[in-house]
Deep mutational scan, measured.
Amino acid sequence: ILQTYRAIANYEKTSGSEMALSTGDVVEVVEKSESGWWFCQMKAKRGWIPASFLEPLDSPDETEDP
């Protein structure tokens, strides 16, 4: 089962193997590399994304803190 994550910042791809993101995009993580790059898919797009640009979809938003 794939894990679902949300983009927390815009990411512009710098090579053909990467995938561009916009803040709020929801992606499915296909593979996690120890290098800190994750292979993700979103609709018909697939590519590598730095893991630091993603957060788990089920994590609470910062605005929901008590």
Rank of each mutant, 00 (worst) to 15 (best):
I1V: 10
T4C: 08
Q41K: 11
N10T: 10
E18H: 05
D25E: 06
V26L: 13
G47L: 02
M42N: 12
V29R: 01
P60T: 14
T4Q: 15
I49W: 00
S15F: 07
K13S: 09
R46W: 05
S33L: 12
G16R: 10
E34S: 11
K45C: 09
Q41E: 07
V27R: 01
E18L: 04
K13C: 12
A7I: 06
S59L: 11
I49D: 01
P56L: 07
A44Y: 09
S17H: 06
W38N: 02
K32C: 03
E12K: 11
L21E: 00
T14Q: 13
L2K: 15
D25M: 03
D25P: 01
F39A: 02
R6L: 04
L21G: 00
S59G: 15
G16C: 13
W37V: 07
S52Q: 11
T4D: 05
L21A: 02
S17W: 09
L21M: 06
R6M: 06
Q41S: 08
N10Q: 06
T4R: 14
C40P: 00
L57T: 15
A44P: 09
T14L: 09
T23R: 10
F39H: 08
R46Q: 15
K45G: 08
I1E: 15
D58E: 15
A51N: 09
L54V: 06
W48A: 00
I8N: 07
D58C: 11
E28K: 08
C40V: 12
Y5G: 03
R46Y: 07
P50S: 01
S59I: 13
P66H: 08
A7D: 00
T23S: 10
R46L: 06
A20Q: 06
G24A: 02
E18F: 04
S22F: 06
L2W: 11
L54M: 03
V27D: 01
P50Y: 02
A7P: 01
K43S: 11
P66F: 08
K32M: 06
I1C: 10
S35N: 14
M19S: 00
Y11F: 14
T23E: 15
A51H: 09
P56N: 04
S33A: 10
T23N: 08
A20P: 05
E55M: 08
P66S: 10
A20F: 05
E34Y: 06
L2Y: 15
P50A: 02
S59F: 11
E31F: 06
R6D: 01
D61K: 13
G47Q: 03
K13D: 11
E62I: 12
I1D: 12
G47D: 03
M42I: 08
P50N: 04
I49L: 09
E62W: 10
L57W: 13
F53A: 11
D65R: 10
E31V: 07
I1R: 08
G36M: 03
E62S: 13
K43Y: 08
N10I: 04
Q3H: 11
V29L: 08
E31A: 08
D61R: 12
L21R: 00
A9L: 05
E28V: 06
D58S: 13
E55W: 04
W48F: 06
T23Q: 12
V30R: 08
S33D: 12
Q3C: 13
K32F: 05
A44W: 08
L21N: 00
V30P: 01
L57V: 15
T63S: 13
D25H: 00
G47W: 00
S52L: 06
D61C: 13
Q41T: 10
S15D: 12
S59E: 14
W38Y: 10
I49V: 15
D61Y: 10
I1H: 03
E62R: 11
M42H: 14
E62H: 11
D25T: 02
A7L: 07
T23C: 11
F53L: 15
Y5D: 02
I49G: 01
F39P: 01
T14R: 10
T4S: 13
M42K: 12
S59V: 14
E31G: 05
S35L: 05
S22A: 03
Y5I: 00
S59T: 13
Y11T: 05
T4W: 06
A51M: 12
T14N: 11
W48V: 02
A7H: 00
I1N: 13
M19N: 00
A7R: 00
G24E: 03
V26Q: 08
K43N: 14
W37N: 06
E18C: 06
S52R: 14
G16Y: 10
L57G: 05
G47Y: 01
S35Y: 07
E62Y: 10
E18M: 05
K32N: 02
A51T: 04
V30N: 03
D25G: 01
K45N: 12
A44T: 14
I8L: 08
